[in-house]
Design a protein around this nucleic acid. Structure first.
Lengths: 231, 231
DNA sequence: TCATCGTAGATCCTATAGGATATTTCCGGC
DNA sequence: GCCGGAAATATCCTATAGGATCTACGATGA
């Protein structure tokens, strides 16, 4: 079993004495990355044997990784016919997802404002102050950087809520959102960042009502920004 | 590959032309059942080779099923050292779970009251009217029956919310709750059923505030009923 | 008696092989 | 040209085998 092929962003570090991961774990991360970074598109067939040849591994770790990704909701399995990448959200699914985001993320923001320690409040504010380079410089790189920034911000808030189950639930939602976002232009980064800063300020000020209201407004506007994609 | 061994409640029906499941799928269901029906206890080591011998199958479908169950949160994997059943909730985890239940299930109940069609409202009321036989007659069977009834009621409400993501989230929470419940006596079935009936009546009456309030009270009391277990 | 080290056996992980099933291609009939 | 059936090929699924790693136990030394 040689090194993983070029183009797969998953270097295999040399084993060291406290290394605890396995090939199977690495394959899961690589496949997840293929999906979330859109090198496998929604609806694409995932050919186990071809992937095993491409990764130069046996099918066994591929199958295990796919089983995990199925439970994560990122791929779908048809028994005896294989796996596909989960499709893009329908309009109804999109609405359900934003409804769920509103439920989970408004709560997480309120709880963060109530409960976060000073270090976490500071980290949220610092993240909200982060900017990304201009979109004209590098459109693809910009998109990835902006997406990563947005994800980090929301995850920091979810972590600060103090409820791990809630954080996990938000993380799962974001994986679905990631799948979706590449295919629908995400306009108005400036507005998004301003909204993040408003949320962070309310959390810093330990203002639960203000924080929840700012997150609600952010998500409502984010939803509106996405809606043209369904026209 | 012969039939599955006695004692495993998973008959393998003869293949029929429209059968779409696989051995791997059957193994997943059987393992999940072992965990949720507590024939594997929290913290138990899961020995892949022994299970493969016991089920008279190869390790491959066992490993895939375990990968899925790990993503479901029901088992935990230590790389190179195998899987264990997820442990019982700590008090802090228990609190986080009930906090999450309150968030998700109060919303699902409110939405069900707002949105459910007449058939669903009727189904919820019918389910709430269902009773289980007396606990003295068959303590083990009673417990399983009561647990199943409770799960069905809550899932009907979640389904009636009209948001599949929310229903999935509640389902995942309930799997964790199932894991926990066998080890802590679930007292006062009468009170629980009365609370279910109050929730159902508010949903039937299309009263979102009343429904949400009834579910909040039910969950708050359920939580209190569990708390002595941590003493 | 306790701690450490070495060894044997058990278990985990992955590769390979083979059978079952699905999909694609080809051919014949209308 | 279109449709249906058969054959060929690809793919999926699972069993088996073998190497890597972990765990448990016994022996030895302080």
């Amino acid at each position: 079993m040689g090194p993983l092929p070029e183009g797969i962003p998953m270097p295999r570090p040399e084993p060291i004495s406290f290394r605890r991961s396995t090939l199977g774990g690495d394959v899961y991360e690589a496949l997840k990355s293929l999906v979330l970074e859109h090198r496998l598109s929604p609806g694409d067939r995932i050919n186990i044997d071809a992937l095993a040849r491409e990764f130069a591994v046996s099918p066994t770790p591929i199958r295990e990784a796919l089983a995990r990704l199925e439970s994560d909701g990122l791929v779908r399995k048809r028994p005896l016919a294989g796996y596909t990448v989960s499709p893009l959200l329908t309009r109804a699914e999109f609405d359900a997802m934003f409804e769920m985001r509103l439920l989970l993320e408004c709560a997480s923001t309120r709880w963060a404002a109530e409960r976060a320690d000073a270090a976490r409040r500071e980290a949220i504010s610092a993240e909200a102050a982060t900017t990304v380079a201009s979109e004209e410089d590098d459109p693809d790189g910009w998109h990835a950087a902006f997406t990563a920034l947005d994800a980090r911000f929301h995850d920091l808030v979810a972590e600060a809520s103090g409820n791990d189950l809630l954080r996990d639930g938000i993380d799962r939602l974001h994986a679905h959102l990631h799948l979706h976002r590449r295919y629908f232009p995400y306009a108005q980064a400036g507005a998004t960042l301003e909204e993040h800063r408003r949320i962070a300020a309310a959390i810093q000020a330990a203002d639960p009502d203000g924080a929840e209201s700012a997150m609600r407004e952010h998500l409502t506007r984010a939803r509106e920004r996405h809606l043209p994609a369904f026209d």
